[in-house]
Amino acid sequence: MSAHLDQIRDQQRETWDRFSAGWKKWDALVLGWLAPFGQAMIRQAAIEDGDQVLDVAAGTGEPGLTVAALIPNGRVTVTDLSERMLQVASENARNRGLTNFETKICDAGALPFPDAAFDAVLCRFGFMFFPDVAAAAEQLRRVAKPGAHVCAAVWSSPEKNTWATTIMATIARNVELPKPPVGAPGLFRCAPEGMMTAVFADAGLHDVREEEITTTMVHDSPEDYWAFMTEIAAPVVAGLGQADIATRERIKAEVLDLARQSMRAGKVELRSTATVVVGTRQLQ
C-alpha cells in the first residue's frame, strides 16, 4: 500500500476510535435503523447453520452478531480497523450470550486469513471508507470459498438519504468546506450507479447483482437527531468545527427546523437508502 493510502487508513482508524463512544451510546437506535440492510445481505449471502462467516469493517458488530445468533453451529469472525469499536462488538456478543463470535483488528485491504476460508463474506457500509476499494474487493473474494457469496452494502445517492443530507447540506450552506479529492473516502463515494457491480466483477466475482433497500431513520425528537449526528458522524463534527459560535447556532436552528418538517406521528422520520451488491466466487 502506498504512503498516501497508509495515511488514509490511519486517519480512518483514529476517527473510528474517537467516535466509538458515540456509536456505543446510540447502538440500540443504529441496530434497529440498519437492520433491514443487514437482513437483505444475510438473505443474499444464503448463509446456513454451520457456516464460517466473515463480516468485514463491522464496527460494533452488525450484521455479524445477528448472523452468529442464526447459526449456532457455525462461527462468525468480525473485523475492523478500530480496536475500540471491536471492544463494543465483543461486549455486545457477551450480552447476547453468543459464544460463536470473535473479533480481529485488521485492514480490509490485507485480511489476515487464508484463501478460501469462509462460506460467506459480508461488508456493511465499509467500502465507502476503504483507502483502496478494488484491493478490498479482491481480498473479500480471496478469502471466500469457491461457490461462496460475497455481499456488501453501500449508501445510495445523497437525494435518497435525507438522514445524512438534512444536516450535511445545512452545514455546507453555511460553512465553506474544502472540496475532497475525487475518489476520497466518504459517505457517498460508492453511490454511482453500477460502481459496486463493476468493482465486484473486476475483483473476479461472478453472477454479480444489486438490490436497492430503503428504510427510515426514526428519532423521538429533532433534538435527538441533532445529538445523534453530532456524536457519531465525523464529517458533521468536522464541518461544525469550521463554524464560529453564531454560525453553529444558526446551523443547529436550521437543522432542527428541517427535522420538524420530517416529523410523522410525533417522530422524526428520515429516508435511508442503500445498494446491496452480491457476487459469487467461481467454483474451481
Rank of each mutant, 00 (worst) to 15 (best):
V133D: 05
N161A: 04
P146Y: 06
E159H: 15
L140N: 01
C106V: 13
R173H: 12
A136T: 05
C151W: 01
P158E: 01
I167N: 00
F125P: 00
P112C: 11
T170Q: 07
P114W: 03
P178D: 04
A169E: 14
P146G: 07
A137L: 02
D107H: 12
Q139L: 07
R142E: 05
V121R: 03
C106R: 11
W155Y: 06
I167F: 13
P131V: 04
E176V: 12
E138K: 14
L111E: 03
S156T: 11
T165I: 08
G126P: 02
A169D: 15
T165C: 04
S156A: 14
V175R: 07
F127K: 00
A120M: 10
C151H: 04
M168H: 13
G126H: 02
F118V: 11
T166F: 08
G147Y: 09
G126V: 00
A164I: 08
P158F: 05
F129I: 01
F130W: 06
T166V: 13
P131D: 03
A108E: 09
F130H: 01
I171K: 00
W163N: 11
P114R: 10
F127R: 00
P158A: 10
T170W: 07
I171W: 01
N174I: 04
C123G: 13
N161D: 08
A137S: 05
A169H: 15
N174R: 14
A134R: 14
R141C: 08
A117L: 06
S157A: 12
A153K: 02
A120V: 06
L177C: 02
E176Q: 13
M128Y: 03
K145I: 09
D115V: 11
C106H: 08
S157D: 14
A148L: 04
D115I: 04
P180E: 02
A120S: 11
A144Q: 06
R173C: 13
V150L: 03
P112A: 09
T166D: 10
W163Y: 14
Q139M: 08
V143N: 03
M128R: 02
P158T: 06
A116D: 14
F129G: 00
D132K: 04
E138S: 12
T162M: 10
R141I: 04
F129E: 00
C151L: 11
R173D: 15
L177N: 05
G126E: 01
A136W: 01
A108L: 10
Q139K: 07
K160T: 11
K160R: 15
L140E: 02
G126N: 05
Q139E: 15
Q139S: 08
F113C: 05
V121W: 04
P131T: 06
C106A: 15
I167Q: 05
H149I: 09
R124F: 03
V143Q: 06
A148W: 01
